[in-house]
Amino acid sequence: MSLWLFIQSLIDGLLMGGIYSIMAIGLTLIFGVMGIINFAQGALMMLGMYVTYWAFTLAGIDPYLSLPLSAIALFILGALIQKGVLERVMDAPDHNILLITFGIMMIIENTALVLFSPDFRSITVPWLSETIKMGDYVVSKPKLIAFFISMSVALLLYWFLQKSYLGKAIRGTANNKIGAALVGIKSKRINYITFGLGAAIAAIAGSLMTPIISISPSIGHTFILKTFVVVVLGGLGNVLGAFVGGLIIGVSEALAGAAFSGTLNELVIYVIFVLILIFRPKGIFGGGS
């Protein structure tokens, strides 16, 4: 591998990693606070993509402007899902919760399939199409923007959880449900907010990606397993860990892709996954929000 290839792959890997990060942040928040491994996270991201897509196609709204729109829409949907379905199984065994979120994913994806048809759709935003050239190296604009927004979301969320009252309430519920209740924190409502927040973050990831890739109802599949890897790598429930984990996975994937032939780079991610699960299930940064 030449030096050029190495560095360009590093750049691309970091940028892609920013996207994995933000997907993972939503997932890790939900797991950290509620103990739910949300299989439907990819499907929620997909919905965010479609919101942005339709906003652009029907009303000409710039994808970054419609970002708050998709975030709010999915926040509401997320809260509803928690209230309507997940609330009832909070105490069920792990695998049952996994199965329920799996069922939710199937419903969301296939409803989207029926409503939107399976065709791949893409948007072309003129001011995003050029790439930034830095000497021999090339940086994709929308990916760069996604990276920075992803980082901002991570920092914002971290600050929110550490410093704000609501954030502390959320963390309190995660750590000690009874104690939190004693102090007057309504854990049910916290859960609505948390899941809604996780869904909103997934939507943000989706909106950021719409200018970059073509979307289709099953796009969530491509990302969900990788997102699990990032979450476990960063430590379930650790927001900053998810951010860093995303970058690590992005870079590993890119470097493996440059080094190996075939699609063996997919293997690298899964092998990392299994190794982490076995030898350091708490992730590199340990758990806890």
């Binding site: 695998h95 699990f228 699609t263 997919e266 293997l267 899964y270 092998v271 996954f273 299994v274 699960l277």
Partner: peptide
């Protein structure tokens, strides 16, 4: 041996099947 339980175990089995699939695919 490494005491993986619950969802951790499930996810590992998922990754395991994927590893085999990608391996055969290549």
């Amino acid at each position: 041996r490494y005491k993986l339980k619950g969802a951790y175990f499930s996810l590992t089995t998922l990754a395991f099947a994927e590893i085999l699939r990608v391996f055969v695919k290549n």
